[in-house]
Design a protein around this nucleic acid. Structure first.
Ligand SMILES: [Mn+2]
Ligand SMILES: [Mn+2]
Ligand SMILES: [Mn+2]
Ligand SMILES: [Mn+2]
Lengths: 220, 220
DNA sequence: TCATATTTTTAGTCACACCTAAAACTATAA
DNA sequence: TTATAGTTTTAGGTGTGACTAAAAATATGA
């Protein structure tokens, strides 16, 4: 059973909104994510339910099935491998890859993805720090925490961003925050939740709580 | 004005069938090329006519316009660049690339194609020896002749194939004919049009007239 | 020239993926 | 408990790109 491009996009959205299948998702949430109308979503949910990649109970939202999870992870794998290709091989900036990967992820060719993976030397993470599922859908997840959750004097390393929008990524480029940077929390301002972060033991960075909530780190 | 994937495929077919815009093309010819029905083609020709990429006179076939030619060449450029990528970087065989390139050619991103061209070091020909148009649609065409047209004792070099089907390409792999091979016509059998070809001054190849008609060479 | 074969277009239908408007259902809080 | 706000589904419709069957136009050759 094959999925259309639209069906793959919906399934991926449901997978993300459900935190990898751990909770159910509402019609309106899907509509917002896909940027379409609730009526269109209802239609599509019925179809995805018939294909048994989601479990759909009218008026009570959807849950992704095991089969659906597997399919979604395949699409996510392709999306992230293409992002690595664009950044590592074609010198795209990390804020330029999302749109194109959104198209490339739907190309149907198992051989292509296998060879691309090999060509990229089996990367484990995409340019935004998100893990790349293997061909069986298995993900090597790292325990990640938002900067905002870290305490003063704690150290760690930036490993990913929660928000992959071009605006946010460009801002990070500008201030010199990048994936792999070693960090230390110098201060947390109680009044507005903003933070002062030491980057690579030399540069001090001030960031709002909105920024700090969208940078993910591993603690050390 | 943007073209859909289907429209791009039709336009490319019309471009090829018209020998690069030099002759008009019938509805049935397009239907055969696209593997669809004449009724569907009539519908699409009306739409392409409205978009002014073809000139469509009911019952008298179509001619591609200058704008249409430009569009078709952009798609052909993308198709052939992807084929080079698949063969040179991902170790695809030359008979495995067509289907995938047929999908990849529709990805919309000028930056992607510019960077891909650069990454591949501005190739001038695809794996089947076909020329890759530049970003303005200009093609450096070589004067090519089918092997079947060559005379005894003439020498040359294989530069392309007319038929890019997997069956034909696999056959060429098997017998050791490849693009770049230096050749000499040793014999032409009048009875059945078959030929005897010396490859790289060491190997003798017997081929039917059907095979000889689908191998293109430059004469030396 | 005129009958017939061939090609092409038109008419009507379908699946897909979207839309708006209206109806149906659920959640909430007075 | 019940009115109402909010959510979701249904009904009906659109554009795209395919199909079959039938009608119309063109090409052919006796
Ligand atoms: Mn997508
Ligand atoms: Mn990413
Ligand atoms: Mn194509
Ligand atoms: Mn080719």
């Amino acid at each position: 059973m094959t999925l259309t491009t639209a069906e793959e996009n919906y399934l991926k959205a449901i997978y993300h909104l459900s935190d990898g299948g751990t909770k159910s998702v509402s019609t309106n949430d899907v509509a917002a994510e896909i940027k379409t109308k609730a009526a269109s979503v209802s239609d599509m949910l019925r179809k995805l339910g018939e294909k048994e990649v989601i479990e759909y109970r009218k008026y009570y939202g959807v849950n992704i099935t095991e089969e659906g999870k597997k399919r979604a992870l395949q699409t996510i794998r392709k999306h992230r491998l293409w992002e690595v290709f664009l950044v590592d091989k074609l010198q795209f900036a990390w804020d330029e890859v999302h749109e194109v990967a959104e198209e490339l992820e739907h190309i149907q060719s198992p051989l292509l993805i296998q060879r691309l993976d090999e060509f990229l030397n089996y990367p484990k993470f995409d340019p935004h720090g998100d893990p790349i599922p293997d061909e069986f859908g298995d993900v090597r997840a790292r325990p990640r925490v938002a900067l905002i959750e870290m305490d003063i004097n704690q150290t760690g390393q930036i490993v990913a961003v929660k928000d992959s929008s071009a605006a946010f990524l460009k801002y990070l480029d500008k201030v010199g925050a990048y994936i792999g940077a070693r960090i230390k929390v110098l201060d947390k301002v109680e009044f507005d939740g903003s933070m002062e972060i030491l980057v690579d033991q030399k540069k001090t960075l001030f960031m709002s709580k909105d920024v700090a909530a969208n940078i993910l780190a591993i603690q050390s």
